[in-house]
Design a binder for these strands. Sequence first.
DNA 1: TTGTATGCGTTATCAA
DNA 2: TTGATAACGCATACAA
Lengths: 352, 352
Amino acid sequence: MSARKAINLKMLSEALGLSQTTVSRALNGFPEVAEKTRARVIEAAERLNYRPSPSAASLATGKSRMIGHVVSLSEHIMINPHFADFIAGAGEVYGENGYDILLRLASLEEQEGVYRDLVDDQRVDGVVVHGPLTGDSRIGLLNALGLPFVVHGRSDEEGADYCWMDVNNRRAFHRATKFLLDLGHQRVALVNGLETMNFADRRRQGYEVALEEAGIVLDEQLLHSADMVEPYGYHATRALMDLAEPPTAIVVASVLPAMGVTRALADLGLRAGEDVSIIAFDDCLSFLQSGYKGRTPDIPYFTAVRSSIRDAGKRVAQMLLERIENPAGPLQSELWEADFVIGQTTAPPRRR
Amino acid sequence: MSARKAINLKMLSEALGLSQTTVSRALNGFPEVAEKTRARVIEAAERLNYRPSPSAASLATGKSRMIGHVVSLSEHIMINPHFADFIAGAGEVYGENGYDILLRLASLEEQEGVYRDLVDDQRVDGVVVHGPLTGDSRIGLLNALGLPFVVHGRSDEEGADYCWMDVNNRRAFHRATKFLLDLGHQRVALVNGLETMNFADRRRQGYEVALEEAGIVLDEQLLHSADMVEPYGYHATRALMDLAEPPTAIVVASVLPAMGVTRALADLGLRAGEDVSIIAFDDCLSFLQSGYKGRTPDIPYFTAVRSSIRDAGKRVAQMLLERIENPAGPLQSELWEADFVIGQTTAPPRRR
DNA sequence: TTGTATGCGTTATCAA
DNA sequence: TTGATAACGCATACAA
């Protein structure tokens, strides 16, 4: 290990017998500096462990090399476990590009104020919008503020005036529902996420269209909507199975409530995949994956529509950095199709 | 809504007909400024929406009002879901005190370099150490660097030369194990976390002491140790139940693998709490809680030793801020006792 | 009680 | 190709 004490530009330039200007230019890749001196400068900078002060650089340039993530971990607790995997993916990309994450916890009502402050303070070069609602006011605000941002998900039908990356939730749930109907199920329930969230709205649309195509009339009793936690899946299932005509299959918005669904069925002496079929949306949450290295993967438990939220985090981060580098460029957007994986929780309905 | 454009100290002082110095002092609560002018200054600052530039303030003071959280979300995926709840608690405290979170993802090997850089760059005023190992080298480094920090957990037996906040893991697991033994169980398995982690080591100690006190010889076949994910609980349980003499009770390090335990038992046609007893450590993860407001809480499913990781986040954050304000003060530490809650997964062993 | 002058460590403008 | 010099916006030692 070489010199450890922090050194500044002035000291470095004196050590080199050059001006601060030249050293700065050499380090920042300006074209007008002679390649020979640039090499000298870079070598000395490494040797003497020179690191430019972020606050000084930020003050001089107005750029912070920070990305803001403003989340309400408390209210919509569903964001919570999903958030960790998303940020794990995004953080990887930030790290490779010399950016850091500024994490701010704020309720949805507080978030507009937070964005304003973040801009006024020049604290971040861009932000990621999490958990967009249908008709989300944050998007208009961010456009007005001129702060680069990418939405994880979408806020409306078109999504034309902002960058976004989303999974095709409508098609995924259409497909899941159709799969169950094709197996012969007639009563398929939907244990959805909170339908103020745009993604949940789209999922419901996919479900409804599939029913309609099969000529099945929607039964409101088979619809549930709430924050996607385990106990929600449990209670929704208990209610569903108490109906005069209970469902024979359930489509669930996340593996978290899906575990609650399974637990409720077990309590009733029913087995998932035999007595009742389940298809869940699987975000590939890390703590539910088999992490054993070099091990052949399990046959998945849940039949699922699947899309890695961690990969989504990576992609959103890339899109945001591109947008920050080129704010005048075209608005990018990306729609991913979910995989469909057959697990152990689907089968034709039991004959009565 | 009043003036929106960002304003700086110079403009504000000119608008007031005062010097920048006086305005700065008034705003920062210096005693020598007249209360009348202070009131004037504060009023004008609010009206004109003055906000001091963080990078300028940071450059001038050397303080960043940022707290660093360096985590390896990828390797020890167990940290992952727990981290979200911890940070939700900590973030609340930071927000109330005008601090922000700097989140950095780095493998354990990279973390020492990250801490060095963070100090050199003056990017953070303090850090929280997550997931301490037994004999964790990060602690010595941070002490050497002189960066204020608090450890969530402990790294060794004494924990004398650093601030920490921990749950009494040894006692919690002693108690859980003893409870099962008192019910009459003779073969109690331990599905532990990764034993390089200090908390898992302590838990195992508690388990072993309880066995010893009951005069039961430790059976290595009943011990498992790995990252605390759901499939781990599943596979460990399948292995346990394949033994010639399977356990009649299992102590599990987290509700995550505990769900895998339950799933494995269900696959074998066994019921938790009837055929096999389970006690889990419950961190009160938000996505497993009944979040319904105004609803009477469920009878908990798992019998558990319980301690809110979110509350731990709050407390650790408070301790860190205190340490930052008073770096020369005494080293604080705090040991919490876990609650013991009876759920539906424990009963005396089945008669054979 | 208030004000002046200087420093914090960069980047950027203008000359040379 | 390189170098003075002026911002950037605040805090603070020193004066008054």
